[in-house]
Amino acid sequence: MELDSSSPISSVTLLPRFGEQTAPEVVEGSFVPPEFPFPNSVTVEWRGESGSLEATSTLEIVSGIYFTLDQLRNYSEQDDFSELPDEVLFRAREAAIEIFEKNANRSFVQRLGFTRDYGHGELLNLAHGDVYELLSKDYQLISDSQACRVPGCHALEFPRLVEYKYGLDGIPSAVSQAVLSLTAYMLRPSNRPIGATGESSDAGYIHFTIAGRDGFTPIPEVNAVIQQFGRGFNLAW
């Protein structure tokens, strides 16, 4: 792992949310991250030769991956992804996962999440579903997407961050395949003018499926998987 920066990096400090602070050896600006428990969040402090802080970045440690970059690289013989660098494939995968999880209203890997509590009402509707462990004191779960304050915590200052672990433990193969399809679609060069909804061609008129107009994503099969495996909404009642 290395920082894309012109400043030389001579040391890094890893500050995990769970686990011990470490300073792995840096060789020519890069380091091999140690293993951390998941889900987790690790702040990386990148320091120069004088010890000055050059940059910070945050790593999100989750319980699994939707598919490997090699699966994407070998997606089909109709695409030329094999020459693309890992960074491009990684970013496309992240973008596709974001779109899928946002519209499915759930994560299929375990993550850390938080919701801001402004202190009003009895129930706190959490920003995520499938919450399986509450990390903040003074709160207790009453469903997998709702918490309430324990007695006595009304004297606390608001707003406060309520932290928790959420997400499913296991990725259905249909979900993995759908996110893979969406990622491949995103990597493919566009074949249409911006804003076009269809086009006449040698094969007749072709209607383009457009994300946001014809469904969550431009691929109807992916939209179907989002509906089949998603929560549909975030709240439990």
Binding site: Y185, R188, N191, R192, S201, G204, I206, F208
Partner: peptide, 15 residues
């Protein structure tokens, strides 16, 4: 008969 066309998957078809 012959022709090319785009499709909604951003692929080109030639037939």
């Amino acid at each position: 008969n012959a022709g090319t066309a785009t499709d909604s998957s951003k692929y080109y078809q030639a037939a």
